[in-house]
């Protein structure tokens, strides 16, 4: 059952991706991207990553879709036909793909419990969380405590992005009273 579901999902994902590459109407592209994220979120659930699925759905299908629609509203509706096609992108992509495929050859089988990932560090978190932190959601424990510093970095990234957007397209808000005084 799971296998069938996974295969179907994969099929849908690949189809969506190719559609995104081909469609020129930006509105459709954005919507397809949202669909892609939703499908990805489902896949994440199948692979036991519920937190990730939750976030991907919120971010990929939610925020980024809204943002992109906003951008379209402010810019253009469709992609123009490129003047010329070049082989370079294809070469880059094929090369990257070859290196990746080469890399997969020595990977452990999918879901294998003997994989190095399942032997080292990861299981320690599951073993130690109950005694160290007493929370059932190990992901939260790792996110906020064991690797809390990464999360601080993550918040800083979000902060940077927010700051950047403010800087680029609106400017820092000021308290109204002070603004008045400055205008005088």
């Amino acid at each position: 059952m799971e296998l069938v579901l996974t295969s179907l999902l994969f099929f849908a994902l690949v189809a969506t991706a190719i559609a995104i590459a081909l469609v020129r109407r930006l509105f459709a592209v954005v919507m397809l991207a949202g669909v892609f994220s939703l499908l990805a979120a489902m896949l994440f659930v199948l692979m036991d990553a519920v937190d990730v699925a939750f976030t991907e759905a919120a971010v990929g299908a939610g925020i980024s879709t809204v943002l992109m629609l906003g951008t379209i509203a402010l810019t253009a509706r469709s992609e123009k036909q490129p003047a010329s096609y070049s082989l370079v992108p294809l070469v880059i992509v094929v090369l990257t793909g070859l290196v990746l495929i080469y890399g997969t050859l020595d990977m452990p089988n999918f879901g294998s419990p003997d994989a190095p990932v399942q032997q080292h560090v990861g299981p320690d978190y599951i073993r130690k969380t109950p005694e160290d932190i007493h929370v059932p959601n190990v992901v939260t424990a790792v996110l906020a405590s064991y690797r809390g510093y990464d999360t601080l970095g993550e918040v800083t990234v979000v902060f940077t992005a927010g700051l950047g957007v403010i800087l680029l397209i609106s400017g820092l808000g000021r308290r109204p009273r002070r603004r008045k005084r400055e205008e005088d």
Partner: peptide, 11 residues
């Protein structure tokens, strides 16, 4: 399942 990749990917 191993929680570490989940954390990394959340980030």
């Amino acid at each position: 399942s191993n929680p570490l990749p989940h954390v990394l990917i959340l980030t």
